[in-house]
Simulated assay, not measured.
Amino acid sequence: MFLFDTITDTNFNFPGQQSVYKGKVREVYGLENDVLVMIASDRLSAFDVVMPRGIPFKGQILNQIATKMMAATEDIVPNWLIATPDPNVAIGHNCEPFKVEMVIRGYMSGHAAREYKAGKRELCGVSIPEGMKENDKFPTPIITPATKAEMGDHDEDISRENILARGIVSKEDYEVLEKYTRALFERGTQLAAARGLILVDTKYEFGKTANGTIVLIDEIHTPDSSRYFYADGYEERQQKGEAQKQLSKEFVRQWLISNNFQGLEGQTVPEMTDEYILSVSERYIELYEQITGEEFEKADTNNILDRIEQNIEGWLTR
């Protein structure tokens, strides 16, 4: 018998509800008065594919890291957040999302390293120097945007020039997105360093409120949206050509790759046993505690959907 309930789907009907959007991980309920209710599910996405089983406490971990990080950056970039009435829930201002994810990379890791290894020396219109090794630091962090995918589709790399040429974002707005992305990455780097970590790369998503303000939305500096290295021993591992000790979702990707799955056509998701599911949950808890410096407190998962519904409705009718 599995020990914990997980959130893999919701079907709420809140007072004043006008819309529902289900992303790869989050479920977003649009209410009247331009209010959004965002529920972080326990779904696990890798290679733009949602895995068949949920991970206990994953949604709580992502939501709590994101809301803490929004509070730690709201002095430099405005964000959408109003309240967090439940461990898995964030409530904020309804925004029109920009249809690009602002990916910023301080080090050549993950997708960038795979592209480099395949012989590419340009990523999203940005030139990458010759002679770099995996996990080397870029001279200056590079912004490599991606188009936002619908559930089940793949995000795609796109250049700044292509974004502007296709009118996906106006030049004026894009310059703000770039400025905010660099400011957030600099702050995130400082926050990570205080925890003995290196913020390797991350992505930010932005939207525009009804009054035209550009704000940060969705998650920020979580292990799903970011990659962290342990600072201690980084240089030594690089010099020896060893793998870096990291905090991110990369361990899930590597497990999938080792089981012949990269989200390609014809590939099947490997079986995720109870033991493996719990091991992933434990890793996410480790990530939370390392990133925040706080002990993780597991929320009650008995009747988890009832708990969420009651806490949201309690906030709405306060």
Rank of each mutant, 00 (worst) to 15 (best):
G233F: 01
Y204E: 01
K240L: 15
I217Y: 00
D232M: 08
Q239P: 01
L199W: 07
E242Q: 15
Q190S: 14
D218R: 06
D232W: 05
Y228W: 12
S226D: 02
D218T: 00
H221Y: 13
R195L: 11
Y204D: 00
A210T: 13
K240G: 12
Y204N: 05
K240I: 09
I198V: 15
T213F: 04
Q239E: 15
K240V: 08
L199C: 13
E205A: 01
A192D: 04
E235M: 12
F206K: 02
E236V: 10
L199A: 11
A193L: 13
E242T: 09
P223I: 00
V215L: 07
Q190E: 15
G196L: 11
L216K: 01
L191Q: 13
E242R: 13
I217F: 03
K203V: 05
Q239A: 15
E205G: 05
S226F: 02
A210L: 10
D201W: 04
E236Y: 07
T202C: 03
L197Y: 08
Q238Y: 12
P223V: 01
F229L: 09
Y230Q: 11
E205S: 00
D201H: 00
A194T: 11
F206D: 03
I220S: 08
Y234K: 04
D201S: 04
G188I: 02
K208V: 14
L191H: 13
R195G: 10
G196P: 08
D218A: 04
A192Y: 04
L197W: 07
G233L: 05
I198Q: 04
S226L: 05
S226W: 00
A193V: 09
A194F: 08
E219H: 02
T202F: 00
L197C: 12
Y230C: 09
A193T: 14
D232A: 14
P223W: 01
I217Q: 00
A194N: 14
T222N: 05
L199Y: 09
Q190L: 13
E205N: 03
T202P: 01
R195F: 10
H221C: 10
